[in-house]
């Protein structure tokens, strides 16, 4: 793929992620390579450490996948970590990538879930 094509793909991903960041309370959205936790594309507020979010969420998602597999409930299609001052949600997309959002603790998780699933669907 040449540089022009890369730029077009980057713009496309960025537009997709903007659908997620429009949800009130979302601090950032990322496209993460699931296996190595590297950032493929990002749309994050200043101060959000995209690389750390990507790596940690990728790792957590892998562990949850193993747990779900051991429990026999199949492949997880939505993940939500709730903490006292924030939340992380992730949805698997095409080719092992993850669509990830980091948000305030009070974010509307239902709306965020829909936005993430929509992005994953478009990517598929």
């Amino acid at each position: 793929m040449d540089r022009g094509a890369d730029a077009v793909t980057g713009i496309r991903f960025r537009r997709l992620l903007d659908q997620v960041t429009r949800v009130r309370g979302v601090r950032g959205a990322l496209l993460v390579a699931g296996e190595d936790g590297l950032v493929v594309a990002e749309a994050v507020m200043e101060g959000v450490r995209a690389n750390a979010v990507a790596a940690l969420t990728g790792s957590l998602a892998r562990r949850m996948r193993r747990t779900a597999d051991a429990a026999g409930i199949g492949f997880p299609h939505f993940l939500h970590l709730q903490a006292t001052t924030g939340a992380i949600c992730a949805v698997p997309a095409a080719d092992g990538t993850l669509v990830v959002a980091i948000a305030d603790a009070e974010v509307n998780v239902g709306l965020l879930r829909l936005a993430l699933l929509k992005v994953a669907e478009v990517m598929a």
Partner: peptide
């Protein structure tokens, strides 16, 4: 932590 999966 919540995980929604195919069968549960």
């Amino acid at each position: 932590i919540v995980a929604e999966a195919a069968d549960g």
